[in-house]
């Protein structure tokens, strides 16, 4: 039974070992709920729209309200504040994610796969992640003994 694939091609033991090896931002990405990762990614998208697209006051207010509502759970207002607007590539990625439907979009953020790419394009997402409330984040890999 232990040889069965548990998650993402890893057995249960491998998966536990992998989780134990996570530190810093990798730990944060994996342990942050997918919804919150998506929220932060979309905040960068909204900020791009607010700074580059002409819109009515109502539309602008709706977007800003959407950003304000992202301050929830582990995401702090400081984290939202440091997020920079998305670049053109990130924008394209988010547009495509948005077009495939909510379920598949969530899948894209599973285990932080998509978020890692977005964070590479927009490092402010990682800074924001550091400002989130995620409890103690291990600085060194956790072994089974520890």
């Amino acid at each position: 039974m232990n040889e069965e694939v548990y998650a993402n091609g890893r057995t249960y033991a491998e998966h536990c070992a992998w989780l134990g090896s996570l530190t810093g931002n990798e730990y944060r990405i994996v342990h942050m709920p997918i919804g919150h990762l998506m929220s932060m990614a979309y905040v960068s998208y909204f900020k791009y729209a607010l700074l580059n697209c002409e819109m009515t006051a109502a539309e602008r207010l709706r977007l800003l309200d959407g950003i304000a509502k992202c301050v929830h759970g582990p995401i702090t207002s400081e984290a939202i504040e440091v997020i920079d607007p998305a670049c053109a590539t990130a924008l394209q990625i988010l547009k495509e994610i948005n077009s495939v439907g909510r379920e598949r979009a969530c899948q894209a953020f599973h285990n932080g796969d998509c978020f890692r790419i977005l964070a590479r394009l927009n490092p402010s997402l990682l800074r924001a992640l550091e400002l989130c409330r995620l409890g103690p984040v291990p600085e060194r890999p956790q072994t089974a003994a520890s």
Binding site: V43, K47, L50, L51, N52, C53, E54, M55, T56, A57, A58, R60, L61, L64, D65, I67, A68, S77, I80, E81, V82, I83
Partner: peptide
């Protein structure tokens, strides 16, 4: 808008002009 933009760390002066409704 100004309040929310300040909270979100967006400079309102850098936003494009609003479209008249």
């Amino acid at each position: 808008i100004a309040q929310l933009a300040a909270k979100a760390g967006i400079d309102v002066s850098k936003m494009p002009p609003l479209i008249e409704a």
